[in-house]
Write a protein that binds this DNA or RNA. Sequence first.
DNA 1: CTTGACAAATAAACACTGTTTATTATATTT
DNA 2: AAATATAATAAACAGTGTTTATTTGTCAAG
Lengths: 205, 205
Amino acid sequence: MGISERKEREREDMQRQILNAARTLFLENGFEKTSIRAIADVIEYSPATIYLYFKDKNEIFYELHEQAFQALEEEFKGVFLIRDPFAQLVELGHLYTKWAVENPGLYDLCFLMEAPMEALACRQESWKKGKGAFDLLRNVIQRCIEAGYFKAHDLDTAALTVWSYIHGLVTIYLKKRMDVFEDERDMERISESYALFVRMIRDGL
Amino acid sequence: MGISERKEREREDMQRQILNAARTLFLENGFEKTSIRAIADVIEYSPATIYLYFKDKNEIFYELHEQAFQALEEEFKGVFLIRDPFAQLVELGHLYTKWAVENPGLYDLCFLMEAPMEALACRQESWKKGKGAFDLLRNVIQRCIEAGYFKAHDLDTAALTVWSYIHGLVTIYLKKRMDVFEDERDMERISESYALFVRMIRDGL
DNA sequence: CTTGACAAATAAACACTGTTTATTATATTT
DNA sequence: AAATATAATAAACAGTGTTTATTTGTCAAG
């Protein structure tokens, strides 16, 4: 009886279609301007159909948020080619910043928007994807400690501190708060600040 | 001819009423759920009337954002009682974090939401309020350099780095991304991380 | 081959949203 | 008191997320 298997496949196909349409529209126009009706238009189904495959709009964006984390982890794969753990950490920051700047919509989804976290809270699930990415940072810092780069701090505290800095830097830029500087040297300023931070943790973390 | 003066007064009164209603509703229910109709209901006028006093919804929230910055600067006044510039900087971080945690809605308005920046971009004005607050940080760091606490870095870079960290820390918390930790020790973790960061800039900035 | 049952898709409605326009009521000036 | 300028609004427009009742399509059993 392969019929229920086929039905399941068809269901997943439909979900994929919806998510693809949603992602495209979201990356073009943002969350608010991505309407269920517009998604329905793209996949050539009625708006009500979408609610047969997703509970609500938040759940769609929760799914996109999971995919975005997948893409981010993919980006991070590059660090494993590096031997030295401190160089790994530095590169991790670079990749994080680069990915954020090149995918502002996805960054929003992963680290700023409420929609995915609300969908998560409703299903009373824990934030697996976030934990995964954070673990990666944690492990790299752990190896930095073992290699004698950092003093033996509480690992979580060190990881949170590094993440806070890079997340803050990126968010200031993405949310257009770099207008505090008169000029338009945003990218240079990001580089200069990151260089300073790296120097600081090299000597002092 | 005091009549045009009275008209101007009445106009400002009305704007105040609208902003007060908008602020209350916003702090209770957030931006999306604060509708023009709800604001109109509170002040007992028709929705269309609001558009005689503000161009659009963004402009209302731009004005609230300015008021929020006023409140933040008020909070900052405490640091001027402190002599030592490094202690000033540490306290500034404390006050910033405290204000953010106690006023998540206002923090959003000041540093994360697009609405006020869009209103600002439309009028092609520069971000005065943000610059003011940033200047405060810049000055404190300048005095830290002069007092020999920090090496003579580029001032803007140092200020951006400190702001990035504290903004990131606060944003991770406010946007509920501290779920990466299993436990509920959010506040302790914030304190521990801030202590680590302070130690780090004391020795290494 | 037809009928009954189940599943999938939808049209239409509900209760909202920001914003604009044409109209009415109020206040000021002539 | 009449004419004019100002302020306020009702109603409409074009959109939103979501739900419900209805129709369409598929497929197995009689």
